[in-house]
Amino acid sequence: MTQSGKIVQDPVRVERAEWKRQQTKARLQQLLTIVSPVLLLVLWEVLSRTGVMDIRFFPPPTAILQTFWELLVSGAIAEHVGVSLYRIALGFLAGVIPGIIIGLMMGLFTPIRHFVSPLVMALMPIPTLALLPIIIILFGIGDLSKVITIAGSVFFPVVINTAAGVLNIDKIYLDVANNYGASKSQFFFKIALPGALPVMLEGIQMGQAIALLTIVAAEMMGATSGIGYLIWTSYKAFLLQNMFVGLIMISFFGYLFSLLLRGLQKKLLPWR
């Protein structure tokens, strides 16, 4: 149908077609995020099988998968992963809990902040891993030295973000609390804690990533078990397939923990 030279169309149909186009586009983009890792793996497989990449350093993914299966069946993975997760969990908690407590105190009480923050600032740049030899001498090569190393690394991002979270609470909320007569404990639970929580959780998220980085390095140096130990001994024995299995485990748990923490974030910050 034409009218003064223009095509007259049903506007609903036009918009529906447009909407469909948008939907398809969104789906294609989602597909892309799956395509990229798959493409990488396929490329890796082909390059390594054809000998373009040195098969000794880059064993094909299918071979890694096979080794993974063997280690899983033999129970080696369960053992190493179990040990590492145990150390990560303890070290993470041992870093996060004091980090939150000290961070809150720094945020809430100015004298404490002035007193503690130079210590935090001075100690933060020292990589806990650089202290590992001393930590091993003091606490042995067992779980405790790993837990302490992780705790030391996790503590700093948590303490700094928690203090910053409290300090960055908009002043108007302090006025509101004051004006409506909030007591000290009400102020803490109704204003300071929820107000600081978003930034605090970001610090915890960061601490989680650091915990994984730290455990691998710590277990490489002085340990008789754990994912880091698996990686290191495989590397020394030139069993690179086994080493890659260790790396994949780290990548998997890093991803898993991020998802878990993001889920926790959604739960704890329903107002966001």
């Binding site: 108007i172 509101v176 007569g181 109704k190 929820p194 107002w271």
Partner: peptide, 17 residues
């Protein structure tokens, strides 16, 4: 009774409640 209550600007309501 409390003596006074203030009506703050828009930003004055607590986002987490």
């Amino acid at each position: 009774r409390p003596l006074q209550s203030m009506v703050f600007q828009e930003k004055g309501i607590l986002p987490w409640m």
